[in-house]
């Protein structure tokens, strides 16, 4: 009878210890649970405003003494038109540099000096929606790389008509 009593008490103690351990486990599990990323909204807005501003930016494409200011959007449109020329070097230029090279250089530089410095990666893609052909190969990405296999936020598609090659669509992806 006494042995049984002692055993019952020990069982009681064990139950208490198990209950407290379970309680602590739940607490730890709750604290380690991933919180939803509240920065996703800001990142998405950043992607949109970055691409919108980039395409609106005015650049000086003067050459041969002729003053010529264009928006980067127009330089991109010229780049699209150059793609289908049999001799791309005979196409549109900006400050004596082929439009595609000029755009890739300036866009990459501006994005590296902002998004790159802020520790963000990006991918800038331009394609012809009908053929899915990319205008830039390789894509314009940051010095730290693109957004492969990462959770990324999109600026949304920015379609623009061009004079000779139809519509081209730009999109900027930003990730951490």
């Amino acid at each position: 009878m006494n042995n049984k009593k002692a055993q019952m008490e020990i069982i009681g103690l064990v139950v208490i210890v198990i209950l407290i351990s379970l309680g602590m486990l739940f607490l730890v599990q709750f604290s380690l649970k991933e919180k939803p990323d509240e920065k996703a909204f800001t990142r998405k807005g950043l992607a949109f405003s970055t691409l919108s501003t980039l395409l609106k930016t005015t650049v000086d494409c003067s050459e041969n003494g002729e003053r010529r200011e264009l928006e980067l959007r127009e330089v991109l449109g010229d780049c699209g038109a150059n793609t289908f020329l049999s001799d791309p070097s005979s196409g549109e230029t900006c400050s004596r540099e082929p439009s595609c090279d000029y755009f890739a250089r300036v866009a990459g530089d501006l994005l590296d000096r902002t998004l790159g410095v802020w520790g963000k990666r990006y991918e800038f893609q331009v394609q012809f929606p009908r053929t899915k052909e990319e205008l830039f190969d390789p894509q314009i990405t940051g010095e730290a790389g693109g957004c492969e296999d990462k959770e990324r936020d999109s600026s949304g598609l920015f379609p623009q008509p061009t004079a000779s090659v139809g519509i081209i669509e730009s999109v900027l992806y930003v990730c951490e």
Binding site: L46, S49, S52, T53, L54, T57, T58, T114
Partner: peptide
């Protein structure tokens, strides 16, 4: 610190890239 990109408009139609 937080960062954003804005366009800086210089009249009449010139836009600069700004942070």
């Amino acid at each position: 610190p937080t960062f954003f990109i804005v366009a800086l408009k210089e009249a009449p139609d010139t836009y600069h890239f700004a942070s």
